[in-house]
Design a protein around this nucleic acid. Structure first.
Length: 476
RNA sequence: GGCCCCAUGGUCUAAUGGUUAGGACAUCACCCUUUCACGGUGGUAAUAUGGGUUCGAAUCCCGUUGGGGUCACCA
């Protein structure tokens, strides 16, 4: 069997969205699983939609995600160039050959004629120029008339091909149109370029979205006209934003880079999107790219679209964060700490150790530490706790002592403070939890904090702790 | 609208003619805990619908409904 060759062929029209990345992932995994090659090709035949810098985003994202391609514009390969705009002459040559073979024809119809045709109720091009005599075509070509080249689709008959996930797909030729293969600017359309390139680049497994499911017979016709072997097809259902809308950048849905900025780990994103439309034979849900390369199989691909669920990706991300060492967490968290202004001056190491087990997504560090900046005027009902039977009155009673104990014990060693508080509780007949609840609330003003009372005192340090306790007492 | 495709809990999915319809996220309850979280245990929750075929259907066939895709000098 020939070596498996798959490709990812995005057009540089902006950010690489999650759906595109998943297509790339599957193409990569299928190639790796089968010891094959994964190729990157840039489909930039539409200069109108070209967005500056998007090619670099594609390179960067793929590499960052670990989807290293064996051949591509920036890494080379034996079948280049890998950018379609640099292959113009190749397409022209094949297009002219196709005309000779009867698979395509020159068309001189004006935009106006096409519009009239459409307005008259025609659903597709009427093959008008197919019937031009050879002499007439040559004359108009020689006269320099603008033209396009259209594919010549049979007027009747059906075409069936086999898709590896959907099975046999049958389409009637009468439902297909004589699409333009070469535009009047000499550039090919997708309909032509993808076939020429896939063949020339020896792509034998075409992995792409289902938007091509019913137009694939047209491409097969092209392969057949040249006498080329058909590739295997694997079509993928889209990732949805909700039941009726596709996930897309147009609706402001997050791209890979946006998720990275929000504090998702690359591994978690890849892991999660792998699960959207594919499942392994066992019930595993967390796996590395390497593991996926082993487990991937087209049998696990889903025939239905799946809705993107950020909540589940958060969960997966939290798993990856828990797997980090303290050092890795610290290194990664620093830049997110830096984004939260009021965190300046706090002990990042301590913050990191406190936050590590509570971070689902790194941008959470802001929310998790809000009590550091929102202390003033907090709701005093926070002192009320049913389990510990505490309230403002009890707090008022305890606080003078708690302040004193803090002043005496919080100098360097916070373990002494803990012991002192416990001892205090015993001597006064309070429960340990009561003292610590009151202490933590008086200190932070928050029901939820990333650690217990002593840890919060340690984070705030002695002076600030005392200041806060005093203010709480004042307000009570 | 024509054509193509799809249909299991709120979400991602497993089960390819015989299972008490399994797992995960979310959710709820309880346990653990100096808060929250983590972790642990348990619960609620699904075969869109109507007909067939079969001893037996989530699974095969047909209709209906719902959804997606496509019908460009975009990919």
């Amino acid at each position: 069997m020939d070596t498996v060759r798959t490709r990812f062929a995005p057009s540089p029209t902006g950010y690489l969205h999650i759906g595109g990345l998943r297509t790339a992932l599957y193409a990569y995994l299928f190639a790796k699983k089968n010891g094959g090659k994964f190729i990157l090709r840039i489909e930039d035949t539409d200069q109108e939609r070209y967005v500056d810098g998007s090619v670099e985003i594609i390179y960067r994202t793929l590499k960052q995600a670990g989807l290293n391609y064996d051949e591509g514009p920036d890494v080379g390969g034996d079948y280049g160039p890998y950018v379609q705009s640099e292959r113009k002459e190749i397409y022209l040559k094949y297009a002219h050959e196709l005309v000779e073979r009867g698979g395509a024809y020159y068309c001189f119809c004006s935009k106006e004629r096409l519009e009239e045709l459409h307005a008259s109720g025609a659903t597709k091009y009427d093959k008008h120029c197919l019937h031009l005599s050879k002499r007439e075509v040559e004359r108009r070509l020689a006269a320099g008339e603008p033209y396009v080249i259209r594919q010549n689709i049979p007027e009747s008959g059906v075409s069936t091909y086999h898709d590896l996930v959907f099975g046999d797909i049958t389409v009637d030729y009468k439902d297909l149109e004589d699409n333009i293969l070469i535009k009047s600017d000499g550039m090919p359309t997708y309909n032509f370029a993808n076939v020429i390139d896939d063949h020339l680049m020896r792509i034998n497994y075409v992995i792409r979205g289902t938007e091509y499911l019913s137009s694939t017979p047209k491409y097969n016709l092209l392969y057949q006209s040249y006498g080329w072997e058909l590739p295997n097809y694997i079509h993928l259902q889209p990732i949805m934003k909700d039941a009726t809308r596709k996930l897309s950048k147009r609706y402001g849905d997050a791209s890979y880079e946006d998720f990275i900025k929000k504090g998702y780990l690359s591994e978690a994103i890849i892991n999660y999107i792998a699960l959207l439309g594919w499942s392994p034979k066992n019930d595993m849900e967390k796996f590395s790219l390497k593991e996926m390369e082993e487990m991937f199989s087209i049998e696990g691909l889903s025939k239905s679209a799946s809705i993107f669920d950020e909540t589940k990706m958060r969960w997966l991300n939290s798993l990856y964060i828990k797997d980090m060492t303290d050092e890795e967490y610290y290194d990664y968290a620093i830049k997110f700490f830096d984004q939260v202004p009021y965190l300046k001056g706090y002990d990042y190491r301590l913050l990191a150790s406190l936050l590590k087990g509570r971070t689902e997504v790194f941008s959470d560090v802001g929310k998790l530490t809000e009590f550091l900046t929102e202390f003033d005027g907090y709701d005093l009902s926070a002192f009320e706790n049913q389990k510990w039977k505490t309230d403002g009155k009890l707090a008022k009673e305890m606080l003078p002592d708690l302040i004193r104990l803090t002043e005496e014990n919080a100098e360097n060693n916070f373990a002494t403070l803990h012991d002192a508080l416990v001892e205090y509780a015993q001597s006064k007949g309070y429960k340990k939890g009561q003292v610590l609840w009151v202490y933590r609330i008086a200190l932070t003003g928050s029901l939820v904090t990333p650690g217990g009372a002593i840890e919060m005192a340690q984070l705030l340090r002695k002076d600030e702790s005392v200041r806060r306790l005093k203010e709480s007492l004042n307000r009570l």
